[in-house]
């Protein structure tokens, strides 16, 4: 039986797979960055299918919004370099890397299916809706995980200062 969930999952997963390949193979970094935005959007859809509403929204705002705008600005600041097609330069190393990737991928698939997870774990729709809300995640962040949360804030401050210092023209 084909339900709406399966249709949506196939569409989002197809978009995610195709765009992730395009990110890695395109010559022009701007095109790669735009496909990466599409990839993040598809992932946000998959998070919604998993009933993780908060994470889906944060994915769109933080990743597709903030981080990718930063990437696009930096690409526009740099001089475009003329890259060759994927297999034109150093093809032996690229085939080796692809082979390693395919082998590791099949190892992962073997592990995933060998574990027979789907017989042991069943999604409890009501429970997963409850844990994906802002309330549930906020409660976790401000009670049990308060110290990591504060540390994350400090990390962001340090990163902002570090980025400013690194991008400065003259060190005094």
């Amino acid at each position: 039986m084909i339900t709406l969930q399966i249709v949506l999952f196939s569409v989002f997963a197809f978009i995610a797979v195709v765009t992730s390949i395009l990110v890695v193979t395109r010559k022009n970094p701007i095109i790669s960055a735009l496909f990466l935005v599409l990839n993040f959007a598809a992932l946000a859809g998959i998070y919604l299918l998993l009933n993780a509403q908060f994470i889906a929204v944060v994915q769109v705002i933080v990743y597709a919004g903030a981080i990718m705008v930063l990437f696009l600005f930096v690409i526009m600041l740099l001089r475009p370099e003329h890259e060759k097609n994927f297999f034109e330069e150093n093809p032996k190393m690229k085939w080796l890397a692809l082979t390693v990737g395919v082998v590791v991928f099949f190892q992962l698939i073997y592990t995933i299916f060998f574990g027979k997870l789907s017989t042991a774990i069943h999604q409890n729709a009501d429970k997963s809706v409850q844990i994906g809300t802002v309330e549930s995640i906020g409660r976790g962040l401000f009670t049990t995980y308060l110290i990591p949360f504060e540390a994350a804030g400090f990390l962001l401050l340090a990163a902002a200062i570090g980025a400013l210092v690194l991008a400065k023209k003259h060190f005094d």
Partner: peptide, 21 residues
Amino acid sequence: IEFYLVLSAFMFITGVVGVLT
């Protein structure tokens, strides 16, 4: 659950190949 994990594995491997090549 396997579908999600295979998608995750595929995206991870594409990232690895991108870093290597």
